[in-house]
Amino acid sequence: MEHSPVRTTIETESGIPFRLVYSDTKSPQNELPDHLHDWHEIIYVYRGQGSIFIDTGLEDMQEGDLFLIPGSTVHRALPDAGNPVTSSALFFSPGLLASTAGGMSSSLLHPFERCRKRRIYKRQLNHAEQAQVSAFIDDIHAEFRSDHHLSSHAALLRLQLLLIFLERLESATGPGHATTSLPAPSWLSSILSDIDLKLRNRLTLPELAQQAAVSPAHLSRAFKRYTGMTLTDYVLARRVIMAKEHLLNGDETMAAVADACGFDSLPHFYRQFKKLTGTTPAAYRRTMVRHR
C-alpha cells in the first residue's frame, strides 16, 4: 500500500481538538512524517539537537528553543542521530479558541499570525522563560492524565494562559530570531522561492536542476537532505496549501482552483487533495466556512 509522506490528521483522546505529545524523544528512524495539517503547533525543546525545515527555511533545534508553527505550514523535524531532540508538541485547532475564548481568541492567535507573516517561527528562551513554558506544558500534561470530567477544559485554560504568556513575551521583548542551522547551498533558497512563484506551472526536476546549475540527481539528493522530503512531495504540499487558500477566500469553481494551483486535471486535484488532507476539496470548503 502506498504511504503518503505527509501526515494530515491528528488523533486526540480528550474529546476536543487539542493534543499534547509530551516530552518525546525522536530519532531519525521514528520521527513523524512532515506535517501538513490545519492545526496550530507549539514545539518546546528540552534537550538534544537537530534541525527543522519550516515553510521555506531551515533552522536548528536545541535546548530552550520554542517553535510556533501556524496551521497549513509544511514542516519536518530532522533529529540528530547521536543526540536526538527531546521535545513536547502541542497541537490545537484555531477554531477551538473561537468557541471558548470568545472575542479574545484573535488576540491569543496573534503570535501565529505574526510568525506566518514574518516567516520567523523560532524563539530562543532564557532560563526563566524556559521554566515558565515548561511549567505550562507540565500542567497541561497533568490535566490530560487526570480522569476528572473537567480535565480537558482545565487543560484548555492552561493552553490559553500559555498563549497569553507568549503574547506578552512578544510585546516585551520583540520577535524571535530566525537562524539557519545547516550550511544549505545558496541555490536551495532560490529553488524554494522559485517553486512558490511558479506553482501554477509545470515544474520538472531537470528544469529546476538547470536553474540551480547542478545535476538532477544531485538536486534530488540535496533537497531531501536539507528538507527531509522529496521535491515532488514538497511541491505537492505547497500546491495543496495554495488550494486551501483559494477554497477559503473565494467562490471559484473546483476546476478554476485546480488550474490556478498547477494540478494537471480536476481528477488529479481531487485525488491528491484527498490523499493529503483526508477530505475532498468541496467538503473542506464546506467544513471550514461553517466553522468560521
Score class of each variant (00 low, 15 high):
residue 167 E to R: 00
residue 240 V to R: 01
residue 260 A to T: 14
residue 256 A to D: 15
residue 259 D to W: 15
residue 240 V to I: 10
residue 200 R to P: 06
residue 246 H to C: 11
residue 136 F to Y: 15
residue 163 L to A: 09
residue 168 R to V: 12
residue 219 L to H: 00
residue 256 A to Y: 15
residue 198 K to G: 02
residue 266 L to M: 12
residue 197 L to W: 08
residue 145 R to D: 09
residue 262 G to L: 10
residue 144 F to V: 15
residue 207 E to G: 00
residue 265 S to K: 07
residue 174 G to C: 04
residue 209 A to W: 08
residue 243 A to Q: 06
residue 246 H to I: 13
residue 228 G to R: 02
residue 166 L to N: 01
residue 162 L to S: 04
residue 214 V to A: 01
residue 157 L to E: 02
residue 199 L to G: 04
residue 136 F to I: 15
residue 267 P to N: 14
residue 208 L to E: 01
residue 165 F to P: 00
residue 225 R to Y: 15
residue 144 F to R: 12
residue 182 L to C: 01
residue 211 Q to S: 07
residue 214 V to W: 04
residue 146 S to P: 01
residue 245 E to M: 09
residue 132 Q to T: 14
residue 238 R to I: 08
residue 145 R to V: 12
residue 266 L to P: 02
residue 209 A to V: 04
residue 206 P to I: 07
residue 162 L to W: 10
residue 241 I to R: 15
residue 191 I to E: 01
residue 249 N to G: 04
residue 146 S to Y: 13
residue 170 E to K: 00
residue 207 E to C: 02
residue 228 G to L: 02
residue 235 V to G: 04
residue 250 G to F: 14
residue 250 G to H: 03
residue 205 L to F: 02
residue 155 A to Y: 08
residue 256 A to T: 12
residue 178 A to I: 06
residue 167 E to I: 11
residue 169 L to P: 00
residue 153 H to W: 14
residue 135 A to C: 03
residue 142 A to Q: 03
residue 189 S to G: 13
residue 194 D to Q: 10
residue 151 S to F: 08
residue 199 L to S: 04
residue 134 S to A: 11
residue 193 S to Y: 13
residue 242 M to Q: 12
residue 138 D to W: 06
residue 156 L to V: 12
residue 263 F to L: 10
residue 228 G to T: 05
residue 164 I to W: 00
residue 185 P to N: 03
residue 133 V to R: 08
residue 143 E to R: 13
residue 268 H to Q: 15
residue 230 T to M: 07
residue 154 A to Q: 14
residue 239 R to T: 07
residue 164 I to G: 08
residue 134 S to P: 00
residue 183 P to S: 00
residue 209 A to H: 03
residue 269 F to A: 12
residue 191 I to S: 06
residue 213 A to W: 09
residue 230 T to K: 02
residue 253 T to E: 11
residue 181 S to E: 13
residue 234 Y to E: 06
